[in-house]
Design a protein around this nucleic acid. Structure first.
Lengths: 195, 195
DNA sequence: CAAGTATGAGACATTTGTGTCTCATTTCGT
DNA sequence: ACGAAATGAGACACAAATGTCTCATACTTG
């Protein structure tokens, strides 16, 4: 990214910086370069040596996180599965990762690379929604963008449920999927048990 | 709030500052005091005279907005109505107001007054959810907090739909209510018209 | 109209974060 | 172990934002 010629970075240093930045950014989006350096146990000069500006650091860390997240989804995704199962698999995978990636929500840099990574997520979700529509799990009358946006938001709600309310990732993913596809209402068809 | 003794504020000045702050904060959460003053057509000294610190300004503006929002909901709320109608009324009212109040989403001040105002909203929504549960519109098995959080988030999704995608507030509120209570899925009971 | 007072303009000190640079020290590869 | 190179510590310049203050001007009220 911003490699000075004659200044390679040691993997250990790089890792320490990125991990510290992620940890710090999730507790305070406005973390300073000094704070990141201190948290990484690294000199401020070293930090600036490898990420010349703060924008460079945020871009690198953000891109790294988005890529991780996309990779995690790809790892559990199987185009052969029913779309509703793919939805569940994605939710189950992504929800517990919120602790690590929550700061991405507040990115206002407008950086092109982050934008592209986020767009890749949206594209994936869009394709999934289209498939859910084909399967009849989502109504044809629902605007695809609407469904995509709701899925996106619900991930954060679910993450809150896990991290702050102590719900299990399994239960939460199930609840999220149910909420998305069938809403919060009772199920009149199931057994007639509901009022 | 931060009235110096012997320095009353002219209503026009106060109004100009608050409106400029709202407008500016919605396009950039990190707007500076100078920018607010300039946008308000007011001297920087005057701004500081009435809101000594930036925190004072944000608190005042935020509290003002939350109060406006709560008042708008109260104005269309009728405890005698069915809860699902009250939900719709709230959504229909709040969604178009997003342009004005979106910046509140990004408040990280942790201010007590804002916290209290936001809590009041949550309390209102919580009571509504309880009622929806009683009516059977929301399943007893759904955690109330979950429902409240989803309603909260969906308002922002809906606001995006109106402001960026050009959906009508009526359609969007209907879509939001349907999404909440019955999900994005097709309606097997309705008429069989859906695929 | 006249007095009182809110306002505008701008200077000022302070603080905080950023980014650069140097040099001694430590670490790593050969 | 030796030499190259990455690192740490700290000084430095710089920019931007905050908050204070003064004084002349414009407005409002009685």
């Amino acid at each position: 990214m911003t490699r000075a010629p004659g200044h390679a970075i040691r993997p250990k240093t790089f890792h320490a910086i990125v991990e510290a930045a992620i940890r710090l950014l999730n507790s305070n989006v406005d973390a300073t370069m000094s704070e990141v350096a201190r948290a990484a146990g690294v000199g401020r000069a070293t930090l600036h040596r490898h990420f010349r500006t703060k924008a460079d650091l945020l871009r690198a860390v953000g891109a790294c996180c988005i890529e991780e997240m996309n990779a995690a989804v790809r790892a559990v995704d199987d185009a052969g599965m029913p779309a509703s199962d793919r939805l569940y698999a994605m939710l189950r995978t992504v929800i517990p990762l919120g602790d690590r990636y929550a700061f991405l929500q507040f990115d206002t840099s407008g950086d092109e690379i982050l934008r592209a990574g986020y767009q890749a997520q949206l594209d994936w979700t869009t394709a999934l929604v289209e498939e859910l529509k084909t399967e009849g799990a989502i109504g044809q009358d629902v605007p695809t963008r609407w469904a995509v946006a709701e899925i996106d938001q619900l991930i954060w709600v679910a993450w809150t449920a896990v991290s702050e309310w102590g719900l299990s990732p399994d239960d939460t993913a199930t609840l999220a999927q149910r909420t998305l596809l069938r809403g919060l209402g009772t199920f009149p068809l199931d057994t007639g048990q509901s009022a």
